[in-house]
Computed example of a mutant assay.
Amino acid sequence: MSSSVSDPVSSTPKPAPGLEKAPPSPPSDSDDEQETFHDAATHFSPEDEATLLAECNATKAEANSLFAQKDYAQAISTYDRALSSCPNYLDYEMAVLKCNISACHLYLEDWKNTIDSASEALENLERLDPLPKPSRSNKQQQKQQQRQKQNGTAKSTRGNLGKETSSNSDDTVVVEIPADEDEAVALHRLSHSDARLADIRRIRIKSLLRRARARHRLATWSSLTGAQEDYTLLLSLHNTTTTTPSSSTRTQTIASNDLKTVHDALARLPAEINTVKEKEMGEMMGSLKDLGNKILSPFGLSTDNFKMVKDEKTGGYSMNFEQGAK
């Protein structure tokens, strides 16, 4: 299902982003894999888990209908009910619900809750498909590309960004079918794993786009910096090629309209960040000055009595006291 995220600086919302549907969970290859993240005591029997998932999916369908009717506030409450039915160790199903909740908050222009819900969805997805940690050389390359864009000297390299093969260790592992497993069953299991991996990465892109837009619209120094990080990550994920559990290759792409949003936002954000940074720094210094005046006033002094003088040789500052300053 295609993703639609409107321009982060546009005041008019675009059509609502599509909701996600969680397919039935494929059988796990190993119970120990889940135990890594969740206490065994939180796991339900297969029968109880199936009952809870059926209840969760029925409630989610109700929430989807409310979303389609643009009753976003009621949809959020209904998605929350679905979450309460979903076993908390089913990270993908939890992520889908939280991603849908972030979409509701986005259209209510509740930027903070959009960010929180999308971040929670991303945490669930990270446990299922951890993002490779960028190497030192990749970080330096990204910084250099960002400087080039800010200086207006970036060459046409957008089509090449993110095409490096993922460094996940699974990419180099040969998939072998266990001797005691039927080949048809094994191939079915691997195809389900491939489909689930594609779903995970699709939901990750949606969650990142929603969080980035909300951070951009929140427009604080911290949130704008976070939006820049999200958009940069999205750009690195576009056209990334990885090897799936069945040893086939899959290329991760971002829809063209969303990719345009990413490029446009990254072009604007450096200047916006600097403007908001200066504004917030000025407000902070003003607050500190007011506090200092309250402390000094009983002594007949004010912050105007203290002047910061820069040493041109060392670049450091010294403070001079002036008795008659006002």
Rank of each mutant, 00 (worst) to 15 (best):
L269E: 08
S3G: 08
A212V: 01
H38W: 13
T249F: 13
R210H: 11
V9D: 13
R210V: 06
L208C: 05
E272Y: 03
T240R: 15
L218H: 11
I115P: 01
T220A: 05
D80M: 10
T42P: 03
C104M: 11
D290E: 10
T241K: 15
S28P: 00
V5A: 12
A40Q: 14
D29A: 11
P134S: 10
K206M: 05
T59A: 11
P26D: 01
Y231N: 06
D31C: 00
Y231Q: 04
E35F: 13
L125E: 01
E176S: 13
I76H: 03
D80H: 11
A82D: 00
A154D: 06
D91G: 00
E272M: 13
I295N: 02
Q140T: 12
S223M: 06
A95G: 06
T314E: 11
L90A: 04
E126V: 00
E123G: 10
I76M: 04
I295Q: 01
D32N: 04
G300F: 04
S135V: 08
R127N: 09
S297E: 14
A121L: 09
L235E: 15
L291I: 08
L125D: 07
F67M: 09
Y72F: 15
C104E: 07
S28M: 02
T251G: 11
L234W: 08
T232D: 09
V173M: 12
V174H: 12
R201C: 08
D290Q: 14
S169Q: 13
S119W: 03
P134N: 09
N57Y: 10
S222I: 00
K98S: 08
I205N: 09
E283H: 09
E229Q: 15
K277H: 14
M319V: 15
R217L: 09
G282D: 11
K149D: 13
S256P: 07
T225Q: 14
E229D: 14
E55P: 00
A184I: 12
A179K: 15
T253H: 09
M281Y: 00
A103Y: 02
K326T: 11
N274K: 15
T225W: 04
V185G: 01
R158E: 14
A214I: 07
T275Q: 15
S156Y: 05
L266Y: 10
D258N: 15
A227L: 05
D180Y: 13
A103C: 14
T251Y: 11
P26Y: 01
E55R: 14
